[in-house]
């Protein structure tokens, strides 16, 4: 390749670089970082749960044999027949954290609440910038998410 060709190639690469003028709002980066961290934790917990289950370090709350036997039942019947409990809320997960499979349940809590934490971050930044539309919808979204999370305790 001649030196002229090399120069042309370099110029093309230079042109393809994104201009520094593209400044992504800081709240977007904060939201991205928050959900990245929380998803990373969730996936790590899933892997940990599998290791704990596979290595028999912790016994499962529900064995695979029990799952296979009753998985055709609706979730409420499944738990009622298998454990004699009526599942309502999250207390039952925390009450059985000494079981490998229940450790895995914590990962779902991280996945489900990642956007809530991200939205709190968005609301704070929007308030600091006095960005009324963004603040308003971030707060509304937080409230709706909270209602969703706490629904089992709000409406019986």
């Amino acid at each position: 390749m001649s030196s002229i060709e090399v120069k042309i190639e370099e110029k093309k690469i230079e042109e393809k670089k994104p201009p520094e003028a593209i400044e992504v709002p800081k709240e977007y980066r904060v939201y991205a970082r928050v959900i990245e961290i929380m998803t990373g934790i969730a996936v790590a917990i899933m892997v940990l749960s599998l290791i704990l289950y596979g290595s028999h370090a912790l016994p499962p709350y529900v064995t695979l044999a029990e799952i296979v036997k009753y998985w055709k039942l609706a979730s409420t019947k499944f738990w009622m027949i298998l454990k004699g409990i009526r599942i309502h809320g999250y207390d039952w997960i925390f009450a059985h954290l000494a079981h490998a499979d229940m450790v895995g349940m914590i990962s779902v809590l991280f996945l489900a609440t990642a956007c809530f934490v991200g939205n709190v971050g968005l609301a704070i930044y929007a308030a600091m910038r006095r960005d009324v539309p963004l603040l308003m919808f971030a707060v509304i979204e937080c409230i709706i998410l909270l209602i969703g999370y706490l629904k089992p305790y709000i409406i019986l």
Partner: peptide
Amino acid sequence: AAPAAIYLAKG
């Protein structure tokens, strides 16, 4: 996110 939490809360 919220539906996932609801399914979790229902077992």
